[in-house]
């Protein structure tokens, strides 16, 4: 069997770890994996790589990583490009639909808005100090109400009359929801109210002062929630498109960026699928050489240090990969 050439994109996020193999000629997504990180990013990544290897064989031409764990993923995989989530999501959105003007991305622990003009990022914003209204909160509330997160959206759509929930702060939102339950409101109405509250919060916090123009793409794990999508559409008064690969757009973007970097002559740093059989360990300690007490993290593969970071002064630094600037 012949090895198929692909680019690998990885989005190591707080809630999910996504891997994508991209066809170098058509930019089609060949394989996509959406795994729960479950607080164990290394294990999630290694598990994902094993699953990819099982569906091979692949010839990986280049690797791109993104997400809050992009450095970690880069160190383990041997990435060619390490990019922030904003650039990765924007690149994937433009690839999906070149007419995209606005990207609304709501992930596990952050949410962002990206404005695109003439095919380049023009402006962006991320949620600031508070992560109210992101996927992790929806997960938590679904669990509290005893419903599967996958059913959340459809249940919210059944609502006839959405109740008003305070969405500024998730702590207050939760007490508001409990109060509304005690008053006897139905679950569907409460969920629909929660969707509206989250959208209100997003628009007034993250998208504050930004001009949202069509085409609007909605991506990130929360885009699976049809209730949120409907609430967004009615608040914005325009159609909101959810791309097919909405849940792995960051990984798609990372793969596209790896392809952009690839010249044909360049060799990838990819460590190979064998990493699935290696054991990775991370150790961390507080450096006490100066009063800053930086938290140093070291990643080792089978006992050999791969990468080390975390100091402000550059001491202990062992770069697994350079930070790719486009």
């Amino acid at each position: 069997m012949c090895e198929r050439a692909v680019f690998l994109g990885v989005d190591l996020g707080s809630v999910s770890t996504n891997l994508v193999l991209l066809d170098p000629y058509t930019d089609e997504v060949v394989v996509k994996l959406y795994l729960r990180t479950n607080g164990a990013p290394i294990q999630a990544l290694v598990k994902g790589m094993k699953q990819l290897a099982d569906r091979g064989p692949w010839e990986v031409l280049g690797v791109g990583t993104t997400g809050s764990g992009r450095q970690l993923a880069a160190a383990i995989l041997g990435a060619d490009v390490v990019k922030n989530e904003i650039t990765a999501h924007a690149v994937a959105a433009i690839k999906h639909n070149p007419a995209t003007s606005t990207v609304i991305e709501i992930g596990g622990q952050d949410s962002k808005i990206i404005l695109i003009r003439n095919g380049v990022v023009h402006d962006f914003a991320m949620n600031t100090i508070c992560a109210a209204g992101t996927g992790a909160f929806l997960d938590q509330q679904a669990a509290r109400l005893g419903i599967a997160i996958e059913e959340f959206g459809n249940l919210a759509l059944q609502s006839q009359h959405a109740v008003r929930i305070a969405g500024r702060c998730t702590v207050f939102a939760e007490s508001d929801m409990i109060h509304k339950q005690q008053l006897g409101h139905g679950v569907a109405d409460i969920l629909a109210g929660l969707c509206q509250a989250m959208v209100r919060n997003y628009l007034s916090n993250v998208a504050k002062g930004k001009r949202i123009a069509p085409v609007v793409l909605f991506q990130g794990g929360v885009a699976a929630n049809t209730g949120i999508r409907k609430a967004l559409e009615s608040a914005l008064g325009m159609e909101v498109e959810v791309p097919d690969h909405y849940d792995v757009m960051g990984a798609v973007g990372a793969a596209v960026l790896a392809k952009e970097r690839w010249t044909g002559a360049s060799r990838t740093r990819f460590a190979g699928f064998a990493i699935g059989d290696s054991s990775f360990a991370s150790t961390s300690w507080e450096c006490s050489d100066c009063p800053n007490h930086c938290e140093i993290v070291q990643i080792a593969r089978d006992g050999t240090p791969l990468a080390c970071w975390g100091s402000r002064c550059g001491k202990h630094q062992l770069a697994g990969v350079e930070n790719g600037s486009a």
Binding site: S68, N84, N118, V120, V121, H122, N323, S325, A326
Partner: peptide
């Protein structure tokens, strides 16, 4: 770090255009 990196990316990419 993330915001700064994304911001510079944005400027570089639009300058390349």
């Amino acid at each position: 770090g993330t915001r700064l990196e994304a911001f510079v990316d944005m400027l570089v990419r639009s300058k390349q255009r």
